[in-house]
């Protein structure tokens, strides 16, 4: 039984040009102890998914269809009051701009205390202090620094506090949305190490969202590659990164610079951003796809299985089945 399962979820944003589908019919499930990564570029809908799972969609967003099953409830149907008992307690989030998520006028330990008290108001003082100590140990902040104010912390330490706050109520699912994007590579490396260690120790469910494929690859067992609101390829990290099948996954991997791959770089010819106003179910990558033909305009892409865990969404099974191209 998976921890969280999303089925055919579609989310639209009301804009002056009509409804824009930011998420178009996606399905996935999260297993305990197997971090799930969402990777894609700006505007691909990955942040919208995170916000949906936290019940934090903006007012002009609307869930058009689908369900999010978590424990016994469908999160899509929760009222704001019901969300309050889930958010932060069962599902917690590490935000993108975490550096600014701390209130500058309160000491960091008080902010973590607040996070615990919000969901466990009857906790005893002794237990509360014990828990705070435990959390700071977990994220490796020395005990003598916990009474500091946020501005006395470095960026990396602030991010650790945010992680501690997310862990405060022992959530079953943690959603990390670009948690290291604002950090230097050296600090990023430490935080990723931290996340990996905590994840394997606590064995929670982790959804990790990033634009950086290497960062996702270093954390997650399972990967979903997103483009234009759709998941276009999903599989274990080995499958997706060693044997990418979808033309977009290949483009993304082909343009990723690392220290030893410059001879493999393929300069893509991406001209247009994804057209989110297209009818639901259409291939949204067609305008940028090198393998696109006339059939792609009219056909609906289907899921093509490569292995029991690896599949890609495309109109042309031939392209997906052929590992070399």
């Amino acid at each position: 039984m998976s921890l969280l399962s999303v089925d055919n979820l579609s989310i639209g944003y009301e804009t002056k040009n009509g409804m824009v589908k930011a998420v178009d019919g996606i399905s996935f499930s999260l297993e305990k102890g197997r971090p799930l990564g969402f990777v894609g570029e700006s505007g691909c809908g990955k942040t919208t998914i995170g916000m949906t799972l936290m019940g934090l969609l903006p007012d002009n967003a609307k869930i058009l269809s689908g369900s999010v099953r978590f424990q016994t409830q469908d999160l899509v149907r929760l009222t704001e009051d019901q969300w309050r008992s889930v958010r932060g307690k069962d599902i917690a989030m590490i935000f993108q701009a975490a550096m600014n998520a701390l209130n500058p006028v309160y000491r960091v330990d008080d902010q973590v205390r607040e996070a615990i008290l919000a969901h466990r108001p009857d906790i005893s003082d002794k237990e509360l202090n014990h828990r705070i100590r435990e959390l700071f140990e977990l994220v490796e902040i020395p005990y003598e620094r916990i009474h500091d104010y946020p501005h006395e912390y470095s960026g990396g330490m602030k991010q650790r506090v945010i992680i501690a706050m997310a862990l405060a109520c022992q959530p079953q699912v943690i959603i990390a949305d670009e948690p290291t994007t604002a950090l230097d590579v050296i600090v990023q490396d430490q935080i990723l190490e931290e996340l990996r260690a905590i994840q394997s120790k606590l064995n929670t469910g982790l959804i990790f969202i990033s634009h950086d494929i290497a960062v996702v690859a270093s954390i997650c067992e399972d990967i979903c590659v997103m483009y234009g609101g759709q998941i276009v390829e999903t599989g274990t990290r080995k499958e997706v990164f060693s044997s990418p099948r979808h033309p977009y996954t290949k483009t993304l991997l082909g343009s990723y610079l690392s220290l030893d791959n410059e001879e493999h770089i393929i300069i893509p010819d991406m001209r247009e951003s994804a057209d989110l106003t297209l009818a639901s179910g259409c291939c949204r990558f067609q305008a940028n796809c090198t393998a696109c033909d006339a059939a792609c305009k009219s056909d609906q892409p289907t899921w093509i299985d490569i292995s029991p865990t690896h599949k890609a969404l495309c109109c042309d099974a031939g392209i997906i089945r052929n590992p070399h191209d």
């Binding site: 050296i186 490396d189 290497a214 960062v215 690859a217 270093s218 990290r237 990164f241 690392s258 220290l259």
Partner: peptide, 22 residues
């Protein structure tokens, strides 16, 4: 610089570059 970094800071920087290690 990538192949024979001399300064410890450069070495550290190279070590933490994200890549596909799995």
């Amino acid at each position: 610089i990538i192949r024979n970094p001399e300064h410890p800071y450069t070495k550290k920087l190279i070590k933490v570059q994200p890549g596909f290690r799995f």
